[in-house]
Nucleic acid binder design. Structure first.
Lengths: 380, 380
DNA sequence: CATAATTAGTTTTAGCCTTGAACTAATTAT
DNA sequence: ATAATTAGTTCAAGGCTAAAACTAATTATG
């Protein structure tokens, strides 16, 4: 209700966006689009045929519905080759880049190790490398429909500025969005990396219905909150900071200012230090006592933070992405059990904890998603 | 993006609702409405004049803008006497009811002590008492535009059912919305009590911009999350359960299943038991050592939970409502200080902690708000 | 195998909504 | 007193969607 009123000119666009948004998840016939949007069949015909002429949509050809009479449907699909976007993930020690077509297909990706580079140097690196790579892979910059940038920690997405991230000095307070917009002449959107991963999971792995929390575990612990596929961004687009939930107010001091933050306990490196284990495999090994202790510790600490999140957010799904590749199922099952027995809400609505369907190293791909979203509906 | 597409018939209604929604907060002229909605002046004229004819809007008469040339504005306002709604707050030991006109003015309210009553008896009591009171106060049931019901704890707002609340057996799993709809023949909406209070604060005390958490402290501790005035309801409309955030995983068992829940520490009765203090006055008294200890304890426990909420939600305001009437400013100031020094986000965006502007005992009034919202925009 | 039934998609006409421009109305600036 | 400014209205024009009647393509049925 807070947005501007719709004038009649925006109405058409609005309905076009709605149709596109439906087709992003699965090919549908005109009849099905009509049913799902509530628009009249005739309106769908008009809008769809316009978009086919413009090249955004494709007809996939006839497709039979099993065991029904009547004319065969003609499935519609987004035309992937209409254009593409670039995703750039900024990381403490590397920058990774991916090209993704508007259907969500990754065209290529690569990683640049950066080491101790300055902001200006990093920007120059991006400016030089991207056009070269585009030329090599025969992608025309004219078809570049947008650019998504993701980074850890607090950002100001509206202003397009990365804000003093802990353990991350690159691009500190630098107006990266403005700089890239100027260079590449396309829309540029900045988003938290956990947010982009959550959106990627929702759009291209499994549509998230209801309220879900996407948790990333690597150097730090990040999180992003989704409600029916929309990000809940909080006041400054930095909601979901699970890593700095205090699970022990008398615990060690954390660089963030708080004490006993989850991030100090439940990352792989923290567990390695505390329990002297070798790797994530040892966590779920039957033979290692140290591994078992570390596993229990992980479940208790992470579980405590998640119970808080479940109670506050009324979650029904928690998605885990990151370091604990090995036997993720065992970890998610244990966390689910922990939450079930420690949350009020769960007595009524059980929470599912599942591993992310995204493969590791999807950050650059994920960074591209907000740019695709922006293309499809002018909003991240 | 998830809703249905707009057909042209809904467009008009949509714009009417937008205009009404603007006028709920302050009287505006047609020109200002045009500016704020983006609708053409001529469209505003048409829509507004229609609504004046229908009796929903009123012209307040000419009003000068200070120091500008031109014709005087004619301020528009919601017509309070167009109709009213009833709010019913269900509490462990009482039911309170309020009549509120659609401008948000409380017409009357009263409280029924219920004691150990059964669900059926309580329902009968409501069915009998309300029409009697309406007749007494000369309110015509024809002008009853809606009915809002609020209750503590987990609910299923969509289905209109109160779900096994802890410490609250009344209406347990009872389809209250259906029953009342049948009896009174108007829309009935069910909402969590903290949610209704948050909406009341937003609509009739101070418009909440950004992300805010409304915290209620009484027998238990509840919470509701607002983003630009819209409730973030979570998966089942029960987000914000601050009271069962664990602040000590090794603490006492809570009836909810978790351990060391905030609710076990930071309510007035918990503090009374733990520190042997007399009342909330003692908390902020200069002379009481016990009071000081209790105060510090309150700030630390509540602060810990709030830091978690701030980090997860990226809050910029926390609003406190409830038991700590005495010297609330001192408590909010201390909490603000605690959060400032314990949250990552706050280093970038300071969080404000403020006492609610609602007077105590606003539950029934607040319960009516979702019904008003429903009247204005068909959504809670 | 022909006809009916069913489902998909298109064409065309009509109606509704918003708009923009030109207007009236009411006030201040000079 | 006249110009400038802001508020609000009227009305013709244009754009979007809807509904109905249509064509198209397939399965069910005897």
């Amino acid at each position: 209700m807070a947005e501007k009123a719709l004038n009649i000119l925006e109405l058409k666009n609005n309905n076009r966006y709605r149709i596109l948004d439906l087709l992003r998840y699965e090919p549908l016939s005109r009849a099905e689009v009509s049913l799902k949007t509530g628009l009249a069949k005739s309106s769908v015909t008009t809008l769809v045929n316009e978009m086919i002429n413009e090249g955004i949509l494709l007809e996939l050809g006839p497709a039979r519905k099993n065991g029904t009479a009547g004319r065969t449907r003609i499935l519609l699909d987004i035309n992937g080759s209409y254009g593409f976007v670039l995703g750039i993930n900024l990381h403490r020690k590397r920058i990774s880049v991916a090209a993704v077509d508007i259907k969500g297909k990754e065209l290529w990706s690569f990683t640049l190790p950066t080491g101790d580079i300055t902001t200006i140097e990093a920007l120059e690196l991006i400016k030089k490398t991207l056009p070269k790579k585009l030329a090599e892979t025969k992608l025309n910059i004219k078809n570049l429909l947008g650019l998504g940038v993701s980074a850890p920690g607090p950002l100001d997405c509206e202003k397009g500025v990365i804000l003093e991230p802990p353990n991350f000095k690159l691009f500190n307070n630098f107006p990266i969005v403005e700089a890239l917009k100027k260079e590449f002449g396309c829309p540029v959107v900045l988003e938290n990396d956990a947010v982009t991963l959550a959106l990627a999971e929702h759009s291209y792995v499994k549509k998230q219905i209801g309220s879900s929390l996407f948790v990333t575990v690597s150097n730090g612990i990040g999180g992003a909150l989704l409600k029916n596929g929309d990000i809940y961004g909080g006041s400054h687009g930095i909601a979901g900071e699970l890593g700095h939930i205090s699970i022990d107010p008398f615990g060690e001091e954390c660089p963030c200012g708080n004490r006993g933050c989850l991030e100090q306990y439940a990352t792989l490196s923290a567990l390695k230090n505390r329990f002297d284990i070798a790797d994530s495999v040892e966590l779920t090994s039957e033979n290692s006592q140290k591994g078992k202790a570390a596993f229990d510790f992980l479940i208790n600490t992470m579980g405590t933070a998640l119970v808080g999140a479940v109670n506050l957010f009324d979650l029904d799904t928690v998605i885990l992405y990151g370091e604990f590749d090995n036997d993720t199922e065992k970890i998610t099952a244990a966390l689910e059990e922990y939450i079930k027995s420690h949350s009020v809400i769960c007595r009524v609505h059980p929470v599912k904890v599942v591993p992310s369907g995204l493969k590791r190293g999807s950050s650059a791909f994920a960074a591209a998603i907000p740019a695709i979203n922006y293309f499809f509906n002018n909003s991240v």
